[in-house]
């Protein structure tokens, strides 16, 4: 729903990277390069950002 604070597997804080990732890939940057520059080296942390779907914007109008 909202981006997790930490990586499920290793515990690295990844929540703060998602907005920058979304903005920069939206501007047409290469996703792999953005993840590298955000310091997400392990594939467990990379999948957290890569596979996240931000649904909270849809849900928040119904509570």
């Amino acid at each position: 729903m909202i981006v997790p604070v930490r990586c499920f597997t290793c515990g690295k804080v990844i929540g703060s990277s998602f907005e920058e990732y979304k903005r920069r890939t939206g501007e047409g940057e290469n996703p792999g390069k953005v993840l590298d520059e955000l310091g997400l080296d392990r594939y467990c942390c990379r999948r957290m950002i890569l596979s996240h779907v931000e649904l909270i914007e849809e849900i928040m109008h119904f509570d």
């Binding site: 604070v5 703060s16 928040m60």
Partner: peptide, 11 residues
């Protein structure tokens, strides 16, 4: 330390 972690969103 990390000031950009989204915790929740409010309408």
């Amino acid at each position: 330390v990390d000031k950009l972690i989204p915790l929740t969103k409010l309408t």
